[in-house]
Design a protein around this nucleic acid. Structure first.
Length: 810
RNA sequence: GCCGCUGUGGCGGAAUUGGCAGACGCGCUGGACUCAAAAUCCAGUGGUGGUAACACCGUGUGGGUUCGACUCCCACCGGCGGCACCA
């Protein structure tokens, strides 16, 4: 008879709840282990089969670590601010808070049905004012340190976004479109809140080296930060004695090859230097550019464009007159917003110079600059004092020269921009700032935090579409008066969804603390996170922002570690049966609730872990699910008879037949768990069960050990078996992990492979201590080996005792 | 275009430091049980040839290093992901 998963799973989930089995201890002599999942956004869609994959992985590790004697912190919470709830609220008239809480309840029920060993007493919710009080507190600290500021900057404006136009961060723009929904993004100047993540650029880059993270993610962060080292070079402008143009170049050694300068169209100098006869051309060009979205400026428009300002700059190194152009291939937001055009040695400049017929002067030997730019190394030519030098030497020389002549300096630039932090939305943390009518600005005092979101009606929640936030409609909340009678208006923008998730891992450590973000002693005990599992899609959003906030909090002395997540693992995606990404439109979506109802949570857990390596994407298979259930039934039947009693062949007598396979299994499963190789661990458990079916007597000791090893994977079934095997009133969760006896793994005889010219021609069972000569003799005596060596000249014999003999013949 | 990952049976995937390729599971085939079916248990299952022993071929393609290569090196092809005028 098969086991009744519905009954067993309900029973043990209730047991765990009632006994608070998985509550982490705040104070303990045990070593700690902190296993964290990326907390979900509780969407109305409910759980997806991708969620349980990462959650099962951390749950297995958590259960394994508890059995190893660790005090384990394994929490779960809700990243519950976000646009979908607000859009739904606007559409239906629901309150986003109510709606969000309903979604959370659905998610929680689904997650609980999978039997994860979360410490639910530490559950957090980013939309809870007791939580976002501290999100606001961190913002205030950033503000006080000058790292949160308001500025008129070029922002990413997505006017078509559902529910009204919105500003998004650079990290949220993919191919000139919004990361969510794919709406076109335009660069427009707006007054917005910005966090100075660039102040941490070097540390964010350098500290990546010590992290145990997937290379792909580290590489993405490195690219995103994009540090480049070069020089700033200052050019005087002809006929404008008080104007200079500063350019940034990673190749200052090519300065003698500069034939023009290019400013970004938005560069402030343009208006000052443009000549009367070029003014119309420049203005027309700027208008054309302004109407383009980012996508049109990059992807769809590889052809260079630009306009001549009529002005000339003076090359500091040789006094040459260089025409100053504007062109949109130069970005206002990077470097100084101006470049020197060296067409001979930069492909972009070459394209531009070719189009506008500007001179191309080679200054490095090599390549054919009439065909394309030459970017390789070589000896400098046409370069006065740099002639004959190679690239690096020339760079050093020119930087010295520029510094000495006050015409430039060494300079480091980053691709990383400051984090655009304000959103024109209702459903987010209010930014705790007040704008006073006397023109000053102040923070909401710390003792007045949290600054709660006001309740709003459906129609008030709609953004105006002009960039004004809906909170501007909350008149009672909006207006404040100071003790001295000065009137003020609250900041109406809210924080982006990434705010709450940038520090949530800290709050689990002390979730109910009203005095501080978290108790320093508790932080010291639990830091750092030992294992963090989540999807790779957060490579440069959540993971970069969280590192930034952690470093800031570290500088404040609030957190003890300079990095939040020492070990990060990205689970692969679970694809549909047709090997494509699951999506409603493709009709290949699997609902975990159905699997749990029909086959049980243990089956889903085993199946998702057995599919393949955690980090790899792999397709779903309904037949694979039934196979996993079949195996659990097979385990059950091995031990339990039709009446629900332990079978007679489970015995205290050990005939030794399972000694080797049992000890091998303990060894392999333990090692695999340490390395998150869940698929091969399960496969080893299967091998053990196959062997157990072949013998007459099942030693109770081995069956206990097996059930313990099964417990992290299939906890409900394992608890039930554990109880039936005679362990009444005891959860398996804290029973010591089984040990193996290395001696049991060693056989007296070993199979030795006989090779001829590297090909296997025979094998024989030999004493494990057989020496080289004995092995070679045995090989030569083998009939089939004889067929291949007879009459041939023996060139060489390689023999590794205990393994193989290889005879090389000619 | 640049960077990272990846390519193994019909399918998902195994394979310490280079040392028996295909563990385990799915699927399929056969057998046992059954009046029969399902379920279960047992066995087989990379291809070709052979009754068999065994032989030859085989880890994306082509070369190389080695006694020996899925594993290391070079070149190329396909798939996935990221970045993409960042000077």
């Amino acid at each position: 008879m098969d086991f009744n998963h519905q009954q067993i799973e309900k029973k043990w989930q209730e047991y765990w709840d009632q006994h608070k089995t998985f509550q982490a201890q705040d104070k303990s002599d045990k070593p700690k282990y902190y296993a964290l999942d990326m907390f979900p956004y509780p969407s109305g869609q409910g759980l997806h089969v991708g969620h349980p994959e990462g959650y099962t992985a951390t749950d297995i590790v958590s259960r394994y670590k508890r059995a190893q004697g660790f005090n384990v912190l394994h929490p779960m919470g809700w990243d519950a601010f976000g646009l979908p709830a607000e859009q739904y609220a606007i559409k239906t008239g629901n309150n986003p808070a109510t709606f969000t809480n309903e979604n959370i309840q659905v998610f929680k029920k689904q997650i609980k049905s999978l039997g994860f060993s979360y410490d639910w007493s530490r559950e957090i919710n980013t939309t809870d004012s007791n939580y976002y009080k501290w999100t606001q507190w961190i913002f205030e600290k950033l503000y006080e340190k000058g790292l949160a500021y308001e500025d008129e900057i070029m922002v990413n404006w997505a006017p078509d976004f559902p529910g009204g136009g919105i500003v998004v961060a650079n990290e949220e723009v993919i191919d000139g479109k919004t990361e969510r929904g794919g709406y076109p993004v335009y660069r427009v100047p707006m007054r917005q809140w910005v966090l100075k993540i660039t102040a941490y650029a070097d540390r964010l880059l350098d500290d990546l080296d010590d992290l145990d993270w997937p290379d792909a993610i580290k590489e993405q962060q490195r690219n995103w930060i994009g540090r480049s080292i070069g020089a700033a070079v200052v050019f005087d402008v002809q006929d404008h004695a008080n104007q200079t143009v500063e350019v940034f170049s990673t190749r200052p050694d090519t300065l003698f090859g500069a034939s023009y300068l290019v400013l970004a169209p938005e560069h402030e100098l343009v208006d000052h230097i443009v000549t009367a006869d070029q003014k119309a051309v420049v203005e027309a060009y700027r208008e054309k550019i302004a109407a383009k979205s980012d996508l049109e400026r990059t992807d769809l428009n590889k052809e260079k464009s630009g306009a001549f300002t009529g002005a000339y700059a003076i090359n500091p190194v040789n006094g040459d007159k260089l025409p100053i152009w504007i062109a949109d291939y130069v970005l206002a937001s990077y470097g100084t917003g101006a470049v020197m055009g060296v067409p001979a040695h930069d492909q972009r400049d070459w394209d531009f110079a070719t189009k506008f017929d500007l001179p191309i002067v080679p200054v490095i030997e090599g390549g054919d600059v009439t065909q394309e730019a030459y970017t390789g190394d070589g000896l400098h030519i046409n370069s006065d004092f740099l002639n004959g030098q190679e690239k690096q030497a020339a760079i050093d020389t020119i930087i010295d020269w520029l510094t000495e002549h006050k015409a430039g300096t060494k300079r480091v630039n980053y691709r990383l921009r400051d984090w655009i932090f304000s959103r024109q939305r209702y459903w987010g943390e209010p930014i705790p700032v007040i704008h006073w009518e006397d023109g000053t600005q102040s923070l909401v005092p710390e003792d007045e935090l949290p600054l709660r979101l006001p309740e709003m009606k459906q129609e008030q929640m709609k953004p105006s579409g002009t960039g004004e936030s809906p909170l501007a409609n909350a008149t009672d909340w909006l207006n404040v008066t100071r003790a001295d009678g000065v009137k003020g208006r609250r900041e109406t923008n809210t924080m982006p969804q990434w705010a709450g998730s940038s520090w949530y891992y800290l709050r689990y450590i002390d979730p109910k603390n009203r005095q501080m973000l978290a108790d320093p002693e508790k932080l010291a005990y639990w830091s750092n996170i030992d294992l963090y599992v989540g999807g790779a899609e957060h490579a440069v959003l959540h993971l970069l922002y969280a590192r930034f906030w952690n470093k800031f909090l570290y500088d404040l002395g609030v957190v003890p570690d300079k990095e939040p997540f020492h070990k990060l693992v990205n689970q692969g995606m679970i694809l549909g049966e047709n090997h494509e990404k699951m999506s409603k439109s493709k009709g290949n979506v699997v609902n975990p609730d159905e699997i749990v109802a029909e086959y049980g949570a243990d089956t889903l857990r085993i199946y998702e872990m057995f599919m393949g390596p955690l980090t790899q994407s792999k397709p779903w298979s309904d037949e694979g699910v039934t196979g996993s259930r079949r195996w659990l039934d097979r385990v059950w039947r091995l031990l339990i008879d039709d009446e629900g009693r332990v079978r007679d062949h489970v015995t205290t007598y050990n005939d030794g037949k399972l000694d080797k396979i049992y000890n091998m299994t303990v060894k392999k499963v333990t090692e695999d768990l340490e390395n998150l190789r869940f698929n091969t661990a399960i496969s080893q458990l299967m091998v053990f069960i196959n062997e157990a079916y072949k013998v007459d007597g099942l030693p109770i000791q081995y069956m206990n050990g097996f059930v313990q090893m099964l417990a992290p994977f299939a906890p409900h079934l394992a608890e039930e078996l554990w109880q039936r095997l005679g362990h009444e009133n005891q959860s398996i969760s804290y029973v010591d992990w089984p040990q193996y006896n290395p001696e049991a793994l060693v056989d007296d005889t070993i199979e030795i492979i006989f090779q001829v010219n590297g090909k296997v021609r025979g094998k024989a069972s030999m004493d494990r201590n057989a020496d080289r000569d004995a092995m070679i003799a045995a090989a030569q005596a083998d009939d089939n080996v004889q067929n291949f060596i007879a009459g041939k000249e023996m060139v060489k014999v390689i023999a590794v005792p205990g393994r193989f003999v290889n005879m090389v013949v000619k």
